[in-house]
Amino acid sequence: MQQSDLSNCDQMHVFEAGNRAAERGTRMVMWITAAMMVAEIFAGWWFNSMALLADGWHMSSHAVAIGLSAFAYAAARRYARDPRFAFGTWKIEVLGGFVSALFLVVVAVLMVVGSVERLLSPLPIHYREAMIVAAIGLVVNIVCAFILERARGPHEHDDHGGGHHHDLNLKAAYVHVVTDAATSVLAIVALAGGWLYGWAWLDPVMGIAGALLVAVWAKNLIKETGKVLLDREMDHPVVDEIRAAVETGPDAGNTRIVDLHVWRVGKRAYSCALGILTHDRSLTPDRVRERLASHDEIVHSTIEIQQGS
């Protein structure tokens, strides 16, 4: 059995523990969002707008998530050379996204409870003032999305999944901004309907709609981060690539993978452990590694070869 090893310098290069541009962008967005969050929650309470309160509370979850993202970048950069982290510190970012998603679930429940209370016991709403605050919140979200889009850079394109984020941490921050912009739009629509047509019920209904939007996003984030944290990667295209690289070629039919484990260790990095049964006496771990070399996302491999009779 033979395996490839990564030095600390290799880990720094492969796993990109500290994306400086993304770190600066997320920190800037965190402070902008925190300020707007306080303004929206206070305005929603003062003007009796449940939709505005819902938008503010969702923005609070957004602020926490962006804060976790910024912390994750800083921690990953700080401990990138720490040998206690066998495959680097990338999963700090993923863990932050998972915790953020759990927090979102709690916020969604509170938003539903508050909206139902307003449906049963409506209060007068200062529509014009609340709409101004909601519109400012929407502008802030657009600005934040632009900041994160610039921080993302041209390299963040997923060749396998068709998406645009290798960086799961940055993706979480970006989707938070987009989702929060959507709840701002819902708040504006609800307040406009109440102001122009007297549909006071529309405000708490939009609050419930915003809560459902938060819950859906939280579910997707839990699923995506949980998949990484639990190493559920055996349905990823890289698995088929490994099988094709090993089982095809001049010795096709004489070599097959009898045991394969693949797990993600970085934004664009995977580790694998292979058990190979072959009738080719000349097949060695180095030759297998040469076949895998064309897939640069495979950064660590453990290879065991059994000779068939």
Rank of each mutant, 00 (worst) to 15 (best):
G25N: 02
L213S: 09
R128Q: 15
Y79M: 05
G67H: 08
A200I: 11
G67Y: 10
W263N: 08
A70L: 03
R152V: 04
A252R: 09
W45E: 05
V113H: 00
I32N: 06
P124L: 11
N220G: 13
A34M: 11
N48T: 01
V288W: 03
H126R: 10
A74S: 11
L191H: 04
L191D: 03
L274V: 13
D203N: 13
V64H: 03
R287A: 08
E304R: 08
V107W: 00
I188A: 04
R289D: 09
W57Y: 05
E224F: 01
E149I: 07
L120M: 13
I298L: 02
L202I: 01
S61K: 08
V189Y: 02
R289T: 11
I92F: 15
P154Q: 06
M234C: 06
L170H: 07
A74Q: 12
T179V: 15
E304P: 06
D286I: 12
D82F: 09
R152A: 03
G253W: 02
L52I: 03
D82C: 05
L123Y: 11
A101C: 05
E40W: 07
Y174K: 09
H62S: 14
W201H: 03
A172I: 14
P122D: 01
H166S: 05
P122W: 06
G210C: 01
F15Q: 15
R84M: 09
G67D: 01
L274A: 09
P237Y: 09
R232W: 12
V185K: 00
Q11T: 13
L260H: 00
L230W: 12
A293N: 14
F42W: 08
A17S: 07
G88Q: 01
A101I: 10
S49L: 02
T225K: 03
A39R: 11
L123E: 15
M1Y: 00
D259M: 02
Y174D: 07
I32H: 06
A35Y: 14
V189W: 06
A134D: 14
E23A: 09
R152P: 06
H160K: 06
I41C: 05
R27A: 14
V29F: 03
M36T: 06
I222A: 06
V94T: 10
A190I: 00
K91L: 01
G162R: 07
G96L: 07
A269G: 01
E149S: 11
I147W: 14
G56Y: 11
I222V: 09
D158E: 15
E233F: 03
G226D: 04
G97H: 10
I305V: 04
Q307R: 15
I41A: 05
E129L: 10
F103W: 10
A75I: 11
M30E: 04
V139Q: 04
E40P: 08
H300W: 14
V112G: 08
H166N: 09
S4H: 02
A51T: 08
V29A: 06
L202E: 00
H126E: 07
R118I: 01
V38Q: 04
A34K: 07
H62A: 14
V175D: 02
N8Q: 13
A269C: 04
